[in-house]
Design a protein around this nucleic acid. Sequence first.
DNA 1: CTCACATAGAGAACAGTGTTCACTTTGCGA
DNA 2: TCGCAAAGTGAACACTGTTCTCTATGTGAG
Lengths: 235, 235
Amino acid sequence: MAEMTTHRHRRRAETEAEIKAHAWAAMRESGPAVLSLRHVAREMGMAPSALYRYFASRNDLLTALIVDAYESLGEQVNETYVRAGAAGQNAFEVFMAVAHTYRGWAMSHRTEWALIFSTSLPDYNGTPETYAAAGRSFGILIQLTADAVAGGLIDVDRLDRTLDDKLRESMRVWAEHTGQELPAGALAGSMWCYSVMHGAISLDLNGQFPPPMADSPALFDSALRAMLAQLTPTD
Amino acid sequence: MAEMTTHRHRRRAETEAEIKAHAWAAMRESGPAVLSLRHVAREMGMAPSALYRYFASRNDLLTALIVDAYESLGEQVNETYVRAGAAGQNAFEVFMAVAHTYRGWAMSHRTEWALIFSTSLPDYNGTPETYAAAGRSFGILIQLTADAVAGGLIDVDRLDRTLDDKLRESMRVWAEHTGQELPAGALAGSMWCYSVMHGAISLDLNGQFPPPMADSPALFDSALRAMLAQLTPTD
DNA sequence: CTCACATAGAGAACAGTGTTCACTTTGCGA
DNA sequence: TCGCAAAGTGAACACTGTTCTCTATGTGAG
């Protein structure tokens, strides 16, 4: 009974989608954070108050947009994960493919990226929905780490020895929580890679790389490979 | 004649500082991006329009705040650079000290960090002043790279060979621009480290590390050391 | 087929915002 | 001491998100 698709229900879903589409369009040309309900309403030829039949507040609309963005990102990333895995590549190569997809998405969806990662939108607070969406995207990283461990690509013992006791303990706590076979050293390594990936993209998007290296997938690639090399056994 | 410090001039500087102080206070408790001129004015017991004698617009006030934030960051970072250098540590250890200062500043100045790095504040566009301020902070990284090269800490040739031709060329272009002795490989390595540093801080601040590893200087430290290890000659 | 009712929408209103403009007060320099 | 620029005021304008009352209208039950 959740999917009683009467005419009205379909119409409602359509308008909802149309609102979000107009919201994205507005943000794309004026930057996120200046999303104006009245503007969207004007654009759609309806009264501002009518929007409140679809989203309880501006924050709720933003939340829906953020969740959609996460979903779009997660979908693309997951797709490459599956495809690269099916092609029989090892976990590190799959990770590189996923990372490049991640970066490509960020570059071609700057508004979405900003909406997801720019701390502190005006007056906006994260909600459980967005946290859940974020977690799903994080899950792939965990999965990749487990794959790499299973494939013997990570020198687990050596990495483990580089951690100090308190850090190793934090890792162990989280590893239990994932339910995967994740030694502390491997988990730390995956965090290192995550940091490189996110940092390189973030700096690039914010224009904080010197001009000649801006928008350079090669720099991104080299940074990630450098970090991966640090995880391999045959040092 | 620029520093004719008449009574009026001093008063003016004071009010200007007071405005900024109130602005910071407001942002600290309501998040950045919701900075309201009227609120600041109310807090100071003056008419909203009076603020316009000090800052031509909300954007101008934001710019001043950002520049101040950069200056605060740059000052702290530079201080550790000087102190650690004077203590006779090698370039890598100095870098680690600088990185920890950087991270510490970010943690204790979340509002400032958000103001500097969160892309797309509502309606705010970067200005030459902020770019100049950013460049000054970037300069230390370049200096550290040069120090490391001079100290023979970086396996310049090996790193150089890992770069593909186009990337090496971009690096060379920028290296010339710095006026320092910076081989392409070393410059790439410094970008890798910059990415790790920024990424780890950014993820941590945005709460995108799993809870047990949140706010962990040790994880930050291990990630950076892993990347540094990738630069050393005695592989 | 009709009738009741939830749904979709309109439009006015409220409190808040950044910004401008004409006006007054006030302090400094000649 | 006088004149003028700087500092501050208060009203106004065009916005914003949100709420409220009100009116159509499509839908499901009898």
